[in-house]
Simulated scan of single mutants.
Amino acid sequence: MYGFGERKTPQPFVAACDKFIYTENLIHLHNPTAPVEADPKPKAAMAGAQLKADTALVNQLRNAVEAASDDDGWAALAAVGSIITKQRPDFDPRNYGYPKLSGLITATTLFEQDRRSPGDGKPAVIYIRDKRRRPAG
């Protein structure tokens, strides 16, 4: 079940959803008849130091990477996003000023990234690994 609402939405409702989207994160199409200042402004991107200081966020990201990782510690970013959404339906990288999870992950500087091409003209898949993890061998 998808849910939509403002930040004042009761937490039990948010938790009952598979995915919850705060209406404040939705960008409306520009209405030429509306004053420019009425257009919503995207949240400013938080700096890496601010993101690292958010221990709840760091733990959420690291736990999701660990849960989705293979034996070498690499996890597909899509799988990481899926795990985070199941644990916290209201998680949205836009809450931190990033339009995509990949941008948020990059900004934290806590993870290595690897783009892998599956071939056959398919788009590259992003894999991430906690930088604290040392390769086996």
Results as ranks from 00 to 15, higher is better:
114 D>L: 07
136 A>P: 02
131 K>N: 14
64 A>C: 04
43 K>Q: 09
62 R>M: 14
98 Y>K: 05
3 G>E: 02
13 F>K: 08
71 D>Q: 11
116 R>D: 03
107 A>G: 06
17 C>F: 01
47 A>D: 06
129 R>C: 02
34 A>D: 13
114 D>E: 13
10 P>T: 08
51 L>M: 06
50 Q>T: 15
127 Y>D: 05
55 T>W: 00
88 R>D: 15
123 P>H: 13
74 W>S: 06
132 R>V: 11
61 L>N: 02
120 D>L: 10
72 D>V: 02
45 A>I: 08
74 W>M: 04
112 E>M: 03
36 V>E: 11
82 S>W: 04
114 D>T: 01
41 K>T: 12
5 G>C: 05
49 A>H: 06
121 G>E: 01
59 N>T: 15
42 P>F: 03
119 G>P: 00
89 P>G: 05
123 P>E: 11
109 T>K: 11
134 R>N: 07
91 F>H: 03
4 F>G: 12
91 F>R: 00
40 P>I: 09
68 A>L: 06
14 V>L: 05
25 N>P: 00
80 V>M: 10
56 A>H: 12
124 A>P: 11
118 P>M: 02
136 A>W: 01
131 K>W: 11
90 D>C: 08
135 P>C: 08
54 D>I: 11
23 T>Q: 01
12 P>N: 07
66 E>Q: 15
31 N>G: 00
134 R>F: 09
136 A>S: 15
75 A>W: 04
92 D>S: 12
123 P>Q: 14
84 I>M: 05
62 R>V: 15
36 V>H: 06
100 K>Q: 00
78 A>G: 11
109 T>G: 03
55 T>V: 04
66 E>A: 15
89 P>N: 00
5 G>P: 05
19 K>Q: 14
55 T>R: 12
48 G>E: 09
98 Y>T: 09
91 F>K: 00
17 C>K: 03
119 G>N: 02
57 L>H: 01
2 Y>P: 09
12 P>A: 08
96 Y>R: 05
113 Q>N: 02
131 K>T: 15
98 Y>G: 03
122 K>A: 09
69 S>L: 03
15 A>E: 14
104 L>D: 08
1 M>Y: 09
85 T>P: 07
67 A>L: 10
35 P>W: 02
81 G>K: 10
26 L>D: 01
105 I>C: 10
77 L>R: 01
64 A>K: 03
7 R>W: 07
53 A>T: 02
123 P>S: 15
36 V>Q: 07
134 R>Q: 14
32 P>Y: 02
126 I>D: 05
106 T>G: 02
37 E>D: 07
33 T>L: 09
14 V>D: 05
24 E>Y: 06
120 D>N: 13
69 S>V: 05
34 A>V: 10
51 L>A: 13
55 T>S: 12
113 Q>C: 06
66 E>V: 12
39 D>T: 09
87 Q>N: 13
134 R>G: 07
30 H>F: 06
11 Q>F: 03
104 L>I: 11
136 A>N: 13
100 K>H: 10
28 H>L: 10
81 G>M: 04
39 D>Y: 03
116 R>Q: 13
74 W>N: 06
106 T>N: 09
95 N>K: 08
12 P>M: 05
92 D>A: 05
103 G>L: 11
39 D>N: 08
16 A>L: 12
32 P>M: 03
117 S>V: 00
35 P>T: 12
111 F>T: 15
16 A>K: 09
51 L>I: 12
90 D>Q: 10
68 A>H: 06
78 A>L: 05
38 A>T: 00
82 S>Y: 07
123 P>C: 07
105 I>Q: 07
